[in-house]
């Protein structure tokens, strides 16, 4: 145990130290190679200019390198793989995409993904908005919000254990220790194996993501609500609008762009949803979604990189519009800057 702690400590120091070392070392080297301390000397001025041309790349270098290796290269490679056969040797054109189009499992995954997309972002945003409005009026609202927010800190695996326990099933007649079945039997119903109920099991998996992401929506929307100028609410009140009218005519329009941001953020997350399905059902009982299907084709049962890559591209293309929207927003911000 001690040896392991020491080993861990040593590796950590080495890793972090190496990173510090790079930045200090490279800058020291630059200052050394092109000294600029001599006052008003012509060579000092020239060296300063050389430094100014090199230094940005010293700063950016590691980031650009890592981004290229870990994100840009894989994207390109995946596109390439999706046009090749299972081992990536032979060009097969659109065969992988054609296969996907007719594959039952793929259709099921697409269907499930759409189901998730239709339910989760809407539900999270709606719940988040309601909770944000309700807690805004409470003195203990912040405490309430952080409790709603808490699941965001829990891993998907941890959340899966928590929810497996909620959905736990014992045969009829036995004492139910899963709270959902306990409630159902208390009201005279029959206990169910929730995560294998055809079709509906998807919703029991979605509940987990809603449970996790509502806190995110709440916090963002609560901050947006805070940003609404109070006098517009007071003016509406003087104009004779009731609380509900104030809510949907005055508050919601003013935070509309934030609602959109929350919605799209959760949408991107849902498109990539993977861990919950993996740990809860492992794609069994018709709960597979695209990311899990891709994972299965890549890592399980012989593996077919071509098909896995084709599925990955489908996910990418689905995310693309949001990505473009993001870039455009960032550019606008840039111009406004």
């Amino acid at each position: 145990m001690i040896a392991q702690v020491l080993y861990a400590f040593f590796t950590v120091v080495l890793g972090v130290g190496g990173c510090f070392g790079y930045f200090y070392g490279s800058n020291w080297l630059l200052d050394r190679t092109f000294p600029a301390n001599a006052n008003n000397d012509a060579s000092a001025v020239r060296n300063l200019r050389v430094q100014a041309n090199i230094r940005p790349w010293l700063f950016l270098g590691p980031a650009l390198l890592l981004l290229s290796v870990y994100l840009i290269f894989p994207v390109i490679q995946t596109v390439w793989l999706s046009f090749h056969d299972r081992a990536g040797d032979q060009f097969v054109g659109l065969a992988n995409y054609k296969w996907a189009f007719y594959d039952d499992q793929f259709r099921l995954s697409i269907f499930n993904n759409i189901l998730w997309l239709a339910v989760v972002p809407a539900l999270c945003t709606l719940m988040g908005l309601i909770i944000a409005v309700l807690t805004d009026r409470l003195w203990w609202g912040n405490l309430a919000k952080s409790l709603i927010f808490m699941p965001l800190a829990i891993s998907f695996v941890g959340a899966s254990v928590i929810w497996k326990f909620v959905y736990d099933y014992r045969g009829a007649g036995q004492q139910q220790i899963g709270i959902l079945n306990a409630i159902v039997t208390y009201f005279g119903g029959d206990p169910q194996v929730w995560i294998s109920l055809p079709f509906w099991n998807n919703f029991f998996l979605m509940a987990i993501l809603v449970w996790i992401q509502t806190g995110f929506a709440t916090v963002i929307l609560a901050a947006a609500l805070r940003g609404i100028p109070e006098d517009t609410l007071e003016a509406a009140n003087i104009d004779g609008a009731g609380p509900f009218k104030i809510f949907y005519r005055i508050m919601v329009p003013q935070i509309y762009s934030t609602i959109l941001v929350v919605w799209t953020t959760i949408t991107v997350l849902v498109l990539k949803i993977f861990d919950i399905v993996l740990t809860m059902t492992n794609s069994q009982w018709n709960t597979s979604v695209l990311a899990n299907l891709m994972f299965d084709w890549m890592f399980r049962g012989g593996g077919d990189f071509g098909r896995g890559a084709a599925i990955a591209i489908v996910i990418m293309v689905a995310v693309l519009p949001i990505m473009i929207w993001n870039i455009r927003q960032a550019n606008n911000e840039q111009k406004g800057h």
């Binding site: 006052n39 008003n40 000092a44 001025v45 300063l48 200019r49 100014a52």
Partner: peptide, 9 residues
């Protein structure tokens, strides 16, 4: 013209 601010005195 080409002298950086810190070297202009």
């Amino acid at each position: 013209n080409d002298v950086p601010p810190s070297k202009r005195g």
